Simulated scan of single mutants.
Amino acid sequence: MRRKEFEMMDSQETESFLQEVSFGVLGTTGEDGWPELTPVNFVFHEGALYFHGSKIGQKMANLKARPQVTFSVAKEYAIVPSYVLDPKLACPATAYFKSVVIKGYGEPVDDLQQKAEALGAFMRKLQPEGGYDPIDPADPAYVPQLRGTSVVRIRVERITGKYKFGQNLKERKLSQVMDGLEQRGGELDAETIALMKAYCPHHQEK
């Protein structure tokens, strides 16, 4: 059961996170009934999630047989060592992270204009500096590429988010963790502290 204090219900914040992360895991069901997981790049565009790839392969066969999918995206911000809160017990060790799970239906995008729009959204996300001709289905150079590439739209039925940044801690322990992260000074520790202040009720009230 998911703890209520870690739930993220803000749709704008969830969409912002999906725009930030480029890599997720697609869950489909194989013909033998076993779940199959495939890591893919993705883009969230106009309320749907898109990925692309070859027209053949196991994930495409799975989608054709059973279009129901689960898609998971996660980003770890900090591993919090146990000794930050307890000098002896290992129990307080934890991780702070954001995660989103999407359940929906995967459907192929066949229209070249829609493909171009989805792939254009990919490029704006993954190569924001430009350096390429716009993807245009009227451009003869792009037509064979668009026809030969499979683009899949995941029509979202349900989306849930879990953001864990110490919301379950009392103010004193929360301060201990922030002090420990500040002293450590890891790559994402400053950002983690800022997110703790943003999401934890002790700091939101101030």
Rank of each mutant, 00 (worst) to 15 (best):
M1Q: 01
M1D: 00
M1S: 02
R2S: 00
R3C: 00
E5I: 06
F6Q: 05
E7Y: 03
E7D: 10
M8I: 14
E13M: 12
T14A: 09
S16M: 06
S16F: 00
L18S: 03
L18A: 03
L18C: 03
V21G: 01
V21I: 15
S22M: 01
F23W: 09
T28I: 06
T29L: 03
G30V: 01
D32F: 02
G33L: 06
W34Q: 14
E36A: 11
E36M: 08
L37R: 11
T38S: 15
N41Y: 08
E46V: 06
E46M: 05
A48T: 02
Y50V: 12
F51N: 07
F51S: 06
H52M: 04
G53L: 10
S54R: 08
G57I: 04
G57A: 05
K59G: 01
K59W: 06
M60E: 09
M60W: 04
M60P: 01
A61D: 15
L63G: 00
A65K: 14
Q68F: 13
V69D: 11
V69H: 05
T70Y: 01
S72Y: 12
S72K: 02
V73W: 03
V73C: 02
V73K: 02
A74L: 07
A74S: 14
A74I: 09
K75L: 08
K75E: 14
V80C: 05
P81G: 13
S82E: 10
Y83T: 13
Y83L: 07
Y83F: 13
L85P: 02
D86F: 01
P87A: 07
P87N: 01
K88P: 00
L89Q: 10
C91F: 02
C91N: 04
P92L: 07
P92V: 12
P92K: 09
A93C: 11
A93E: 11
T94V: 11
Y96G: 11
F97L: 09
K98C: 14
S99A: 15
V101F: 04
I102A: 05
G104N: 00
Y105T: 14
G106I: 03
E107T: 15
E107Q: 10
V109Y: 02
L112A: 10
Q114R: 13
A116F: 09
A118N: 10
A118F: 09
F122S: 07
R124A: 14
L126C: 02
P128C: 11
E129Y: 05
E129S: 10
Y132I: 01
P137A: 12
P140R: 13
A141N: 12
V143A: 05
L146G: 04
G148N: 14
G148T: 10
S150L: 14
V151Y: 12
I154V: 15
V156Y: 02
E157V: 13
R158I: 01
I159R: 06
I159C: 08
Y163N: 04
F165I: 09
F165P: 08
G166V: 12
G166Y: 08
L169N: 10
K170Q: 15
E171Q: 15
R172L: 07
K173R: 14
S175W: 01
V177P: 09
V177F: 06
D179M: 13
E182H: 13
Q183V: 12
R184Y: 15
R184C: 15
G186T: 02
E187K: 12
E187S: 09
E187R: 11
L188I: 01
A190C: 00
E191W: 01
L195V: 09
Y199N: 15
H202T: 07
H202N: 05
H202M: 06
E205R: 14
